[in-house]
């Protein structure tokens, strides 16, 4: 275990504030009430994750990715099973696209949703560190989750934060994950920052 339960709770609190802001932005966009909840957060090393969950390397997903840099570097992604992604896009746009695969129009919508959520959650993490992060523009990626990691970063010590994300939109529930990969060396800084918050 990387974080103590107290540390995890503290992070969860911060991220829920970010999720709340993201839900507000999504409600504005869709002109209907969107609820975004974060039922669980897990921080693990890549080596441990691969042992317990092979969906990372095997399952195909639809994701929106943002790279960030600053005092810590990494990649954040909003990850969905393809069918859930299509459903979310339909609900947000209030349109049935009918086609079985994500096309560029739908990918654009998902990118916008992902951009909003990731910005707010990364913003919340920035607040834990009390430091500013720089981000690039969000982009849509389809494939195995493991491919979201830059090849150079794919070491067993890579720290991954998995944030369960539950959307409630127009009376429907859609579940996805926000996955954040922190580059090497950021773990100690991360734990220190969390401890600062707690103290």
């Amino acid at each position: 275990m990387i974080l103590t339960p107290d540390q995890e709770d503290a992070i969860k609190e911060f991220i829920n504030i970010g999720a709340g802001h993201a839900a507000g932005a999504l409600s504005e966009l869709t002109e209907s009430h969107v609820k975004l909840s974060i039922p669980a957060i897990k921080v693990v090393k890549l080596a441990d994750l691969e042992k317990e969950d092979d969906s990372f390397t095997k399952e195909i997903s639809s994701s929106v990715r943002i790279n960030f840099k600053g005092f810590t570097d990494g990649t954040a992604a909003l990850v969905f099973p393809p069918a859930s992604a299509l459903k979310l896009v339909s609900l947000v746009s209030d349109e049935e696209f009918g086609t079985p695969d994500m096309d560029s129009v739908q990918a654009g919508i998902l990118t916008e949703i992902g951009n909003i959520i990731l910005n707010h959650i990364l913003g919340a993490i920035g607040n834990i560190f009390q430091q500013h992060l720089e981000y690039n523009v969000a982009n849509y990626v389809e494939g195995e989750i493991i491919k979201l990691i830059e090849p150079d970063d794919s070491t067993p010590d890579l720290v991954i934060m998995i944030i369960d994300t539950q959307f409630n939109l127009k009376d429907l529930e859609i579940t996805g994950d926000v996955v954040i990969f922190f580059k090497l060396g950021s773990l100690t800084k991360f734990v220190e920052a969390v401890e600062n918050v707690l103290s």
Partner: peptide, 16 residues
């Protein structure tokens, strides 16, 4: 507002 504060880029999709 987020951009004017130096925050992350915003993406506006063509459809929405």
């Amino acid at each position: 507002q987020q951009v004017f504060n130096g925050g992350a880029p915003i993406f506006f999709s063509s459809h929405l």
